[in-house]
Each structure stands twice: as C-alpha cells, then as structure tokens.
Design a protein around this nucleic acid. Sequence first.
DNA 1: AGTTGACTTAAAGTGCACTTGAGGTTCTAG
DNA 2: CTAGAACCTCAAGTGCACTTTAAGTCAACT
Lengths: 154, 154
Amino acid sequence: MPALSDAITIGELSQRSGVATSALRFYESRGLIASVRTNGGQRRFARPTLRRVAFIQAAQRVGLSLDEIATALRKLPERRTPTKADWAVLSRSWNGLLRARIVELETLQTRLTSCIGCGCLSLKTCGLLNTEDRAAGRGSGARYLLGDAPGVAD
Amino acid sequence: MPALSDAITIGELSQRSGVATSALRFYESRGLIASVRTNGGQRRFARPTLRRVAFIQAAQRVGLSLDEIATALRKLPERRTPTKADWAVLSRSWNGLLRARIVELETLQTRLTSCIGCGCLSLKTCGLLNTEDRAAGRGSGARYLLGDAPGVAD
DNA sequence: AGTTGACTTAAAGTGCACTTGAGGTTCTAG
DNA sequence: CTAGAACCTCAAGTGCACTTTAAGTCAACT
C-alpha cells in the first residue's frame, strides 16, 4: 500500500513511462498494476509502479501477451515493495525467454543467410527445420521456417 | 501465371505451409499471394507460393505486419517465377531487420543482466536509455527500457 | 469562489489477423 | 452417376490491446 505522500498520479506515471493513461487504466483492470485512491476517488500509484510498467513494456517487446506478463508479475509481492531479490527472480526467468527469442532469431538468420549464400532456395538441397517454438509466435502450431515439407521440392 | 499442371490446391498449400486455408484466402485478399482459377472457380497456386508463404511466416515472427510484408513482397516480380536474385534482394533487406531486432533484444538483455548483477534496480545508479526503435515495437513512440525518466529515481 | 486542467467511469469503437458460419458449387473416387 | 470431400463467397464473429467518447468530478491556482 503506497502512502499518499510518495504517490504519483496517473498523468505523471503516463508521462514518465510513455504509456497512455487509458492503457494504464487498462493494465490496472487486468491486474498488472495497482493503485490506491484519494478521498476524491483518483488513482495514486506507488513509485515502484514505474518499474513495473517498464517491465511490462520490455516484456511486450519480447513477445509476451499481457496475460503472460500478469502471471509473471504475480510472483512479485503485493503487500510490500519488491526487494532486489524479488525482481531478480522475475528478471531471471524473463531473461531466459529473451535468450530463447534471440536464439530463435539467430537460427532464422543463419538459415536465411546460408540459403541465400549457397543459392539453394529450393528445398531439395536446403536443410529445413520445423520450428516448434511457441513462446513468441503469434500463430498456432508448428511452422516451416523457410520452405516446404521435407522431401518436397518447390 | 502458373500453369494448371504444376499448380497446387489451397488445401495442399495449407497442409504444406501449416497455414489454415482461411488464412491463405485472407492473404490473397490482402495481395500477399496470388492464384489462378480453374474453370469451376477454385484456386490453384503456383509452387513458389509455398516459399512466399514461408517468407510471410518468417517475417511475422520478426514482428512485421502483413501490410509491411505485402510491401516487401511487391518487390518480387508478379509475372515471372522469382529468380535467385529476386529472393536475395528481398532476403537481404529482411536480414537487416532481423539483425536490428537481435541487437535490440541483446541490448535489452545486457541491460537487464547488468542491472540485476549490480543490484541497482533504482535508476539513480543504473544508466538508462531511451529506445528509439520502432521497427518491431507494437507500441507508439519512445519507451524507457527498464525504468524511469533520466534523473528521476523510483 | 471560480476557472481550468486533470481526473473519474462505463460503454462503445478501432485495427490487426484471422476464424466461423451459412449456404452453395466443384472435384474425384467408386 | 452419385456420394462425399473439398472447395467457393460473403458476412459476421473473435481475441488482443488498447483508444475514444460522453458525462461528469476533483484538484490546484488565482
């Protein structure tokens, strides 16, 4: 529970995070951030909310949905200000996702480069792999990275 | 224009690409792929469409919208089967985007790791940068990566 | 005390990328 | 020749992540 003394308004939070107030209200409705209210009913956010919002932004860039981010953020304590250790746990797991995403893109790049390099855009000659990654994909199911099903030339 | 002899049906294209027929029709309506019709009005796709669809899938994973992908694909010749050189041009520009995206994620990772490592999740001590990347971002405008505005502690 | 800007809610609207449904036609195997 | 799978169109529906609108309230400053 943030004391009203070290609290910031939704406008301030918006300005400092670069996220629209409407989005911040939306995040609150989805349980990603929390606020206390003034007597008049206005939201006041604790300063660490800024860090939380930054985390949300960063996580979105890695391809996580708000639901996934909300789940991750539930690991942070609600009642007390998150400690260094709290954030470390969260950031480590998130770092794993980041690494996975990087590896995925690098694989994609390598495959593309080698295909272009050797000139074999046909899949008779190019090895092709079925990516089974689902973390960052917006689509459903397995997809072929750059080509056809094995054994079929295009 | 694909000869009907080396043409594949939408069902085949769907199975081989892993993309639903409804999505393929949608792609066609958006001008990402093209087909000829049988006398009965059914679609027939040229085999290189398979490569095109694979490209679309890959580009989506990098964070491009269908509109952006459509624009990129317009660089491919409509009338003749794309040559190795045609694809190379396309893939090189796409490769640039990929590299940029990887760099972005790596920066994010480095920053996160060093912040966790030194324990300074407050931004008094942590250097913070305003990411100005927009290629892969779904949000609008600049965002702070992991923190507050410069000079403001949280 | 009044004005102005920032805030409030609830509901509807937006854009993207599709999917689903209804109702009908075509293709292919037996 | 016929059954059934696969295809067709068009319109409406879905899920996500918000934004916009309307009507009103609160907070800060003069």
